[in-house]
Design a protein around this nucleic acid. Structure first.
Lengths: 193, 193
DNA sequence: ACCGTAGGCCAACGCCCGTTGACATTCCAG
DNA sequence: CTGGAATGTCAACGGGCGTTGGCCTACGGT
């Protein structure tokens, strides 16, 4: 061992790796898993396709690296219970406007089983954990999390993927005003209130 | 002309055409546009791939025929205004459980521009028309239709495509109980009610 | 009974894909 | 200064895809 346990020796190829990842995110987000080709990604990153294979193994490995995704949910226990809906939708919009990773994941999850699995894990686990954390009935926490995921993913799907005109036109603040009460009821309300 | 203007002479190939269309819907719904291959569809229909080309021109034409889709929205003017949300979500679930055309359209719209365009048209036009029909402010009708589309498509996406466990487990009646008030507010309520 | 024609199959084309292995270049530790 | 590892290029492979055109078959109107 040259240093300690070679903790963070910067490799010369880090720039290339990053360029590949950025190009991959762009392509996956814009075209989905199957239309985004390794050749096109490599061309965007100005390197040879074989480098992609060397660094990420295969196309699936590349996607796994490019679609690394964390909802970064805030601590909901610190939020006044009446504002949970607004805090959540505001967070999601903040998190997603300008980060195409979610678009990549959404497009890919529609056709790629592995990506769908990852999406299931992310949303089921992370949202359920956040919802369960502030003391709702654990039995209904999963259901509430599912409904929140359905509404937020529907928003993302119509705004970023299908680009339904009214959903694209609305400002984040307008969306928040409409959707916050929905999430609030899914989180703390009762069905058919 | 043998008959009148040859109105409905049944062709011998109608059965084949129908078999192709059914196989196409199955494959497009299960695998999306790019993974569903003409060869596999033809094999399912037990005919030669070239027949698909003869009858539908090319892959896009086949998809267009297979994804012919009508929301078949009921006449909302005949519904008591207070029950609009429930009627709508009940209709959608009825319409979609067991018809895979929507799944095909959803999967394809994620990656295929033509399919996305069709989805935009279907939801923007049909829902906007239905919403505008019962006398809401025309200026907000498009927005309300967009929000309804976002919620219902999010439900479909999480239940039929990603198959989030809680969204798959819930019965239609449970879903109706939760989602009906949401649609009701999107249709007749005010933001941040 | 005939024969045009619609229905169907087969073989092949050109293309692009993911992936591989051999080779060239650059870096840097000893 | 030098040799091995890291970085990168090049050319090719096998395979699957959409699509085409030629050929065979069997129906059905006359």
């Amino acid at each position: 061992m040259t240093a300690a346990t070679e903790p963070a020796r910067p490799r010369r190829s880090d720039a290339t790796r990053a360029a590949i990842l950025q190009a991959a995110r762009d392509r996956f987000a814009a075209e989905g898993y199957e239309r985004a080709t390794i050749r096109a990604i490599a061309a965007d990153a100005r390197i040879d396709p074989s480098m992609v294979m060397r660094y990420y193994g295969n196309k699936e490995g590349l996607f796994a690296a490019a679609a690394e995704f964390d909802l970064r949910l805030p601590d909901l226990t610190a939020v006044p219970p009446g504002q949970l809906g607004e805090v959540l939708i505001r967070h999601f919009l903040d998190r997603w406007e300008g980060d195409e990773t979610l678009a990549a994941l959404l497009r890919a999850a529609s056709t790629n089983p592995g990506a769908a699995d990852r999406m299931r894990t992310i949303f089921a686990d992370q949202i359920t954990a956040a919802v369960a954390a502030f003391g709702t009935d654990p039995a209904t926490a999963a259901r509430r999390a599912g409904l929140v995921a359905a509404q937020t993913l529907g928003l993302a799907f119509t705004r970023y993927i299908v680009q339904l005109p009214p959903m694209v036109t609305m400002t984040p603040e307008e969306l928040i005003a409409w959707v916050a009460p929905t999430l609030q009821r899914y989180l703390t309300g009762l069905p058919e209130n």
